[in-house]
Design a protein around this nucleic acid. Structure first.
Length: 435
DNA sequence: AAGTCCTGCAACCGCCCCGCC
DNA sequence: CGGCGGGGCGGTTGCAGGACT
């Protein structure tokens, strides 16, 4: 077991690269492409192993690398993605296209990890440290557990999506059309974007994704809405999900993708979530979801989705949505109480979100998903920990105006994670809107 | 000013995955 | 089907430079 290091050969240089070596490598790759890394060093006249060359190129010489300090935005993204993905640096790096996994890894280890630890957050689990928790903090733990479940689900979903994007890219290349060019660029940018993030691929001015999109837009003939491939992929996922039984773990090897949380420990018991409160009566096991892509010449896809293959909170959010005349979704929420989520809190925040959403676009609704969801969980936990608080369906909204506790920090932290997953929805409502 | 400690980061190492034969 | 090799990934190391004593 274990292969001998590729540069064990005597005479191969190790250690820091000299400017001359960099120049040689750069010149060679610019002229010939890297091709086979193993044979590259000899061809390029370098006394290095191929692996070393590859590393030097990917981590340092590549022209599309952004160097220098990480912006606050990037920091947030890293933290949030780490919460979802763990130490999967390459996956995280795929969200920060101009940063390398190595750079992100280093930055995490040297800065962010310590910062989180200082905040009393376990950098591994992204939960408040147990030893730092008083009994009064138990609500934070509960909320974290709930969100952890969401994170696990999201993580699994991201993986599945990345696989789909890879497949989609292959198909795109096979079809060798201008369309595929644009779509594949976008797909790579979207490698791990959530369905709610798809809009980001359009014209988010604050994100580096936009570069990719613009590049492809500039270099290609009129293409379908950039989100289209990914949306289709998602349809497939959901179609499979809806035609398959629940809880079946499937690998992607045979084309079946398991979207369920692989290590879920949190149970959203049917017993504690009344169907009515979920907006999923027995006749509502399948709900309708529609995509809306593009401004003019919209492409709309409608799909019956079995929401039961999703965690309850997702079902909760999407399960009872209905189409409206303007093409966007409205939602109906039985203002009902749920023992799990606390008295009226679910209905309340959803109701609030939808008020916002119906006033503008569903994107806004989705954009508030994270806020509301976190709010809901934390407030719910509040209710459970302090029964006298229970009852007011508006209390969590009132809470929004009063920074009531240290809970606030944790709340915004987790809000951030969900905002990452959902935020981009709000930034672009023209290209692709999940409705 | 010199020595020590700390920090940041480039590079290495070993393992794993996957395609090819 | 199994072995092999290339490429990729994540963990770790080692060094340079800055901060501190």
């Amino acid at each position: 077991m274990g292969r001998s290091p590729c540069c064990e050969k005597i005479g191969l240089k190790k250690g820091p690269w000299t400017p001359e070596e960099d120049q040689k490598l750069l010149a060679y790759i610019e002229e010939h492409g890297h091709g086979c890394w193993r044979s590259l060093p000899s061809k390029a006249g370098l006394q290095r192993c191929g692996k070393s060359c590859r590393l030097r190129w990917t981590n340092y010489l590549r022209p599309d690398i952004k160097r220098g300090k990480f912006s606050v935005q990037e920091e947030q993204t890293i933290i949030q993605l780490h919460a979802l993905l763990g130490n999967r640096w390459s996956a995280i790096a795929s969200h920060l296209p101009k940063r390398t996994d190595n750079e992100i890894k280093n930055f995490w280890n040297t800065h962010l990890k310590k910062r989180l630890a200082k905040m009393g957050i376990d950098p591994v689990t992204h939960k408040p440290r147990c030893d730092a928790l008083s009994p009064a903090d138990s609500h934070v733990t509960k909320a974290s557990a709930s969100l952890s479940h969401m994170a696990q689900w999201e993580s699994a979903r991201l993986e599945a999506e990345a696989r789909l994007v890879r497949e989609a890219k292959l198909l795109c290349f096979a079809s060798s059309s201008a369309v595929s060019l644009g779509a594949s660029s976008v797909s790579s940018a979207a490698a791990a974007a959530s369905p709610f993030q798809l809009q980001l691929l359009g014209s988010d001015s604050s994100s580096s994704h936009v570069d990719l999109h613009n590049e492809s837009a500039a270099s290609s003939a009129p293409a379908p809405p950039p989100c289209f491939d990914v949306l289709r992929a998602w349809q497939d996922i959901w179609r499979r999900g809806s035609t398959r039984g629940r809880g079946e773990g499937q690998s992607s090897r045979d084309g079946k993708i398991d979207l369920e949380s692989p290590t879920s420990t949190l149970t959203f018991s049917e017993a504690v979530i009344p169907e009515g409160a979920m907006g999923l009566g027995s006749q509502h096991n399948s709900s309708s979801i529609a995509y809306r892509c593009g401004g003019e010449g919209d492409v709309e896809e409608e799909e019956e989705v079995d929401w039961k293959c999703f965690p309850k909170p997702m079902q909760l959010f999407f399960g009872s949505r209905e189409r409206t005349t303007d093409g966007f979704a409205a939602a109906t929420f039985p203002v009902d109480s749920s023992p799990l989520f606390g008295t009226d809190s679910v209905a309340s925040w959803l109701h609030e979100s939808v008020k916002i959403g119906s006033g503008s676009t569903a994107a806004s609704t989705i954009a508030h998903f994270g806020d509301g969801f976190t709010e809901m969980l934390l407030n719910n936990a509040d209710e459970h920990s302090s029964p006298e608080d229970a009852g007011g369906c508006t209390h969590e909204l009132a809470d929004a105006g009063k920074p009531n506790s240290e809970n606030e920090e944790s709340r915004s932290y987790w809000n951030g994670i969900f905002n990452l997953v959902t935020s981009s929805s709000a930034s672009n409502s023209s290209d692709c809107v999940l409705v």
